[in-house]
Computed example of a mutant assay.
Amino acid sequence: MTFSLVARCAETGQFGVAISSSSPAVAARCAFARAGVGAVASQNVTDPRLGPAALDLMAKGAGAEEAVAQVRASGAFMDYRQVLAVDAQGGTAIHSGPNSLGIWTQAIGRDVVSAGNLLANDGVPAAIVAGFEQATGALGDRLIAAMQAGMAAGGEAGPVHSAGLLIVDRESWPYAELRCDWIDDGCPIKAIARAWEVYQPQAADYVTRALNPSAAPSYGVPGDE
């Protein structure tokens, strides 16, 4: 019911997750990232505990491969889970249990890994990785391009209704966390792409507002001087 990617920007050190599903609010349960540590997606009969567990292991020095191996060994019902991870060195790892739903597969590239289940075909994750590697610009641009490539390759077997984009940079809070938790008509990935288009030019300014409000620009809204 889901396809996603986790990725690292080698230039900036940012980490990101982009994900879409036929289920509601997929990013709320499945997307995890921590500045300076890595990014994880936990999907397919989701256990939201797995993402923070893998990030905790990476924060203590484990690479993505070791973290996923430990989560696989200690987690419950792992035959039903997919877990994707990228670490601070760009190392990647993935676990896909044999009870993943429908057509399920995975693909790994440089600083990026993608997986999905209940897919229209087994080429979708490879298309997502290729889309990420061929795209240019900010990490968010590349994540969006990757998801659009996945949709163009067939996406999920049925319609998708939710999507999310999560990016972390240097601070403990997300640099960007954009979600479309449910849409009846249209494409939630397009909704996220539009939200990123609006948010990206202001993203750094919101960090400045948090760290030093006196240096933050005004946007001309009531009460904003």
Rank of each mutant, 00 (worst) to 15 (best):
S22Y: 12
S22R: 15
S23L: 12
P24T: 13
V26G: 01
A28W: 04
A28C: 09
A28H: 02
A28G: 12
R29D: 10
R29K: 15
C30M: 07
A31R: 05
F32L: 00
F32W: 11
F32N: 04
F32E: 02
F32Y: 04
A33P: 03
A33E: 00
G36Q: 12
V37T: 07
V37P: 05
G38V: 11
G38R: 08
V40A: 01
V40P: 03
A41M: 03
S42N: 00
S42C: 00
S42A: 13
Q43K: 12
N44I: 08
D47W: 08
P48S: 07
R49T: 15
R49E: 03
L50R: 06
G51Y: 01
G51H: 04
P52W: 09
P52G: 11
A53V: 01
A54Y: 07
L55T: 09
D56C: 11
L57R: 13
A59D: 12
K60T: 10
A64S: 07
A64P: 05
A64K: 13
E65M: 07
E66A: 12
E66Y: 09
E66W: 08
A67E: 02
A67P: 01
V68M: 11
Q70W: 12
Q70K: 15
R72T: 12
R72Y: 05
A73I: 08
S74T: 05
G75V: 04
F77P: 02
F77L: 15
M78N: 09
R81I: 13
Q82V: 01
Q82M: 11
L84W: 14
A85V: 07
V86P: 03
V86Q: 00
D87F: 04
A88D: 03
Q89C: 07
Q89P: 03
G90K: 04
T92W: 02
T92G: 08
A93N: 11
A93Q: 05
I94Y: 08
S96G: 12
S96I: 12
G97S: 02
G97K: 15
G97Y: 12
P98W: 15
N99D: 02
S100Y: 08
L101W: 12
G102C: 02
G102V: 15
G102E: 04
I103G: 06
T105F: 06
T105R: 09
Q106K: 14
Q106A: 13
G109S: 07
